[in-house]
Design a protein around this nucleic acid. Structure first.
Length: 316
DNA sequence: TAACCGTGGAT
DNA sequence: TATCCAAGGTT
């Protein structure tokens, strides 16, 4: 079960001053609603789905409404996919909404409406990968497991390894890095708070661009800073993914039309969303149908899955 | 491994 | 204006 540690792992705790980090976190911690004491594991899980590749500021209003409307897995499971996709709104990556709905269904059906507390079990749930499984186990159940996201990887890369940026993700290496740090904590019950503090530091101080090293609690021991803050080696940076004109944008436009219409729409209604390139539009629509984010009814009209085609509240 | 999957604010 | 980047997951 324990991972093999790399032989060139740095000395214990190098670059991380625990007391400084905890003291800083006690003062700097943002008052995020999913960190409140009365939030349930499911509601924490919902926040982790929404936060995947999405800034906190955009998640806040959606999560707040969501957990009031659907406070439990079974409540979420009994909603239609159409309602879930509409509540998701323009949060982005709508496949996450579908997977969250599926995840709720599995937990309600197979786990008596109780979110599992073991990483291995969590990772089998739809839409739950290595990060989300560990985040739920740690933040909801206080399990002393490493939680590694992009913030943690960046902080460790700088403070411990002295590099400007994290290298390519490697689950085994990344987990071993943080596991080694957790092992130095006085008691295992501080693991969750340690992970939250590392993530917070990466989010608001040790940022990807223009890190605020002057206000960093780790500035005295940070190996990157001690080395003179050398720039990234910048060897293999993939060309930035563009967005304008891609199938992703077209999918977004099509889904936007369907979210805004309470009744099923015609193909012509969809054509308006991306009028120029019919080939690309059809490809995007086919992929949405394939993903189960859109369905075509017997009469040929298109709608969000599970939507009542004759919804009397139609607003067109 | 790398491509793909949305969206919008910051720089 | 163009690029970066944000609590990743799946194939």
């Amino acid at each position: 079960m324990p991972d093999i540690l790399p032989v060139n792992r740095p000395p214990c705790g190098a670059g991380i001053e625990f007391n400084e980090l905890f003291n800083w976190f006690a003062v700097a911690e943002r008052d995020l609603p999913w960190r409140a004491a009365d939030v349930t594991p499911w509601q924490i899980m919902v926040s982790e789905f929404m936060l995947q590749q999405t800034p906190v500021a955009r998640v806040l209003p959606i999560w707040t409404d969501w957990v009031v409307r659907w406070p439990t897995p079974s409540a979420t499971a009994s909603a239609t996919q159409a309602d879930v996709l509409r509540a998701w709104g323009k949060l982005g990556y709508p496949r996450r909404a579908k997977r969250l709905h599926e995840c709720a269904t599995v937990i309600a059906r197979d786990f008596a409406d109780v979110v599992p507390d073991e990483v291995d079990v969590l990772e089998q749930l739809p839409g739950v990968g290595s990060y989300t499984a560990r985040a739920v186990a740690s933040f909801a159940y206080r399990k002393p497991v490493p939680v590694v996201d992009t913030n943690v990887r960046r902080v460790v890369a700088r403070a411990v390894h002295g590099r400007a940026d994290a290298g390519a993700p490697s689950a085994r290496r990344d987990h071993a890095d943080v596991e080694a740090l957790l092992a130095l904590l006085p008691t295992a019950d501080r693991a969750a708070r340690f992970s939250a503090a590392l993530m917070e530091l990466g989010a608001i101080v040790c940022t990807a661009r223009a890190p605020r090293c002057g206000g960093c609690p780790l500035r005295n021991g940070c190996r990157w800073r001690l080395a003179g803050s050398p720039p990234a080696t910048g060897q293999q940076r993939r060309p930035a993914q563009r967005y304008a004109g891609t199938d992703r944008q077209v999918r977004g436009r099509l889904l936007d039309v369907l979210r805004d219409n309470a009744v099923a729409v015609t193909r012509a209604d969809l054509d308006v969303a991306w009028p120029v390139d019919a080939v690309q539009r059809e490809r995007a629509l086919a992929s949405l149908l394939d993903d189960g984010l859109v369905e075509q009814l017997a009469d040929g009209l298109f709608a969000l899955p599970g939507q009542d085609r004759n919804d009397s509240t139609a607003s067109r």
